[in-house]
């Protein structure tokens, strides 16, 4: 997905806030942020980290500096396995126009040698928001892998995959009752960008998002019906 096309797709769909959360990587965030400069789209820096348990979690930040500080920690715990582009595809880093800058040579599609709790604490310490991703999904979802929410970290939010209605997710995993839920497109292609989360915020910051997820101080959040969006 080329940065200018991501921005155009979001603006066409009326989306004003996205996060770039590549797998164990942050190298393409600044390109999308630059491509969105001067538009109504805010691009939060983030990462989808895969921890030792093989659980995927979204790590969202306010600033690129925070995300890069997290990347430095991840890099120290990423096994030194070279990527095989013929199996896993090219891992390209591009500029704001989508032009090639360089290749990421290390395999990103693997687990970082950090525990879920370690990752949670490091991300939180840096000011980030840590959200287990697609928690219902058999591949890399928290519930299939860990059976139940971990009781050693104070998670606030969980993300469910786009294939499931929130009410269905809570029915299957009653423990989800205790968490704020978001539902993301987990978009790997332009047509998967779905904009399922509607936030009422004063500004697009993590502090505001936290308030909205808790429904505090007039901020709010709701998950739009994915079936309506799919039919558009």
């Amino acid at each position: 997905m080329l940065p200018p096309l991501i921005v155009m797709e979001c603006l066409e769909k009326g989306i004003s806030l996205i996060a770039i959360t590549d797998h164990n990587a942050t190298a393409n965030i600044s390109a999308v942020q630059q491509a969105a400069e001067g538009t109504d789209l805010t691009v939060l820096p983030g990462m989808e980290v895969q921890t030792r348990e093989e659980v995927h979690s979204l790590c969202l930040f306010d600033t690129l500096e925070q995300a890069l500080a997290w990347q430095a920690i991840v890099d120290r715990h990423l096994p030194a396995i070279p990527n095989r582009p013929d199996y896993f595809g090219d891992q390209l880093i591009v500029d704001a126009n989508g032009d090639f800058l360089k290749r990421e040579e290390r395999l990103l599609l693997t687990s970082v040698n950090l525990s879920l709790a370690d990752a949670f604490h490091q991300v939180t310490r840096l000011g980030g928001l840590f959200i287990p991703a697609h928690v219902n999904r058999t591949a890399n979802g928290l519930f299939p892998i860990l059976g139940m929410p971990p009781d050693d970290i104070p998670l606030e939010v969980m993300e469910i995959s786009r294939h499931l209605k929130p009410a269905e997710a809570v029915k299957i995993y009653p423990a989800l009752h205790s968490y704020s839920l978001i539902q993301s497109g987990d978009a790997h292609r332009l047509d998967e960008i779905s904009g399922l989360n509607q936030f009422t915020l004063q500004s697009p910051t993590l502090q505001e998002i936290r308030l909205a997820l808790r429904g505090e101080q007039g901020r709010s959040h709701r998950i739009l019906s994915s079936t309506i969006l799919a039919g558009e």
Partner: peptide, 25 residues
């Protein structure tokens, strides 16, 4: 198995469980 959801439905009472998973759950 390393998927705890599988273990919860598949393992038998009194049995041994062999896993690579070291998470506290």
């Amino acid at each position: 198995a390393d998927l705890l959801s599988c273990v919860m439905t598949g393992a038998s009472r009194g049995g041994l469980w062999v896993t690579l998973q070291a998470h506290s759950n």
